[in-house]
Nucleic acid binder design. Structure first.
Lengths: 240, 240
DNA sequence: AAGTGGTCTAGACCACTTC
DNA sequence: AAGTGGTCTAGACCACTTT
């Protein structure tokens, strides 16, 4: 299991950068220099640089060289995977109803357009920790709800109607009071603010095909995200 | 401004995938087929595939071909850029104090180790919308606080002590009541829950070098994140 | 055996930056 | 003019998958 030459060159450069040998702003040795040093071709050295470039560690500047970049601590990666909790979700109701105003606005529905409204409750150790409501524009003659409910991951609901690779999701994380039906299921009080995760599913053409709103109690726990250059094999622990 | 051949090939394949011409799981034409079709070399076709691979649209399977991947709607990109609000932050206090228990635990400090505690308030249109507290282990003889305060982006504070490229950040988004000093500055009530964004700065060796806790009022607005394949030039609008 | 991607070579010409 | 990265060629051999 010998590593490819370009991977070894990349690993060597990465190690030197992360250990401080090349401070940010520094220019690395040129492609030709490294090709000579490793007795290889320029193409192979170039591939090594492209690995580091895709990792966000360096950028190429034509006519000058490869420059070490400062890490971006403003862009985070957040994982929100409801299918991981699949077995603990309980379906409460599935209805075809006129949407409330906020939903019809987000989905840009015309007056009178109905939505499929799916309400679920997430329980852990018998304690409800999240309440979840999904809204899908209702179209007669489209695949049945029963079929759609087999999928646990929200965007999968639309795979039958759209090339699913052309879907994207926008997420909004905020804080708000829950509606009465959610409060009843979660057992929280009228003024009590909960964390709210809203997700809007769009096609790449901008058509809005689904909307979900999830209310998370403190028992659900916090959401995690991380940023920066993560070393290979880094476990990525939790805060606290 | 003619586009490179490999970019044109990549754009053509990307368009075909996103418009549903190649459903997920499909294998794309082979490198040799495309090299013939475009009357170019295999290397150039290969670069086109690597562009799409880095975008997460396809993956290469040795001996089989390039396969279209389903989009990941569980991994989101979240931008949390406090430097964008730089001019609206007001420093309230900077003290060198014994840390509260939760802070000394997160930073894994020994008993008696002091921290620099920086408290700031973010105002918009004269209305406080966020309160922000940073904790940095205090070391005698290290660069002065005055110097460090020049930086607006939290991890920049550590650039003088560490190779900043070797820092990463863990974020936790939750909900909690604010401490008294924060409530006073924000003008909110004792039971009122706020959104809390905690960030822990670590070196790649796992040393914990800083911790921040930010309380966001409803007036701050929600946090945004997005996932999925975003078309080139897509504006990426907001929900609602 | 035939086809696929994975790696690599030894050149070439171009655009850009610096001197 | 010299050095840098950006693009591209026309081969080669290897490992893997399928028939």
């Amino acid at each position: 299991m010998k590593q490819a030459l370009y991977q070894r060159i990349a690993a060597s450069l990465r190690q030197r950068i992360l250990s401080g040998g090349h401070p940010e702003g520094d220019f690395l040795p040129s492609e030709n220099e490294l090709a000579d040093a490793y007795r290889t071709s320029r193409v192979t050295v170039r591939r090594a640089f492209q690995v580091l470039e895709s990792e966000g560690l360096i950028r190429a500047r034509q006519g000058k060289g490869y420059q070490v970049l400062p890490p971006r601590h403003t862009v985070f990666t957040l994982t929100f995977d409801e299918s991981a909790d699949r077995d603990n979700y309980r379906f409460l109701e599935v209805n075809i109803v006129p949407p409330e105003l906020s939903v019809s606005r987000v989905l840009r529905l015309s007056d009178g357009h109905l939505v499929i409204d799916i309400r679920r409750l997430l329980e852990r150790d018998g304690v409800p920790v999240a309440y979840d409501e999904k809204f899908i524009p209702y179209e007669r003659g489209k695949p049945s709800i029963e079929l759609e409910l087999r999928y646990s991951e929200f965007p999968d609901l639309f795979a039958s109607r759209f090339a699913s690779v052309s879907l994207r999701t926008e997420m909004r994380i905020g804080i708000d009071v829950a509606p009465p039906h959610a409060r009843a299921a979660l057992g929280c009080e009228a003024e009590e603010r909960l964390m709210v995760v809203e997700r809007l599913i769009l096609t790449t053409e901008g058509e809005r095909v689904g909307f979900s709103r999830e209310f998370l109690t403190p028992a659900f726990g916090p959401l995690y995200a991380e940023s920066g250059h993560v070393q290979e094999g880094d476990p990525g622990g939790t805060i606290g």
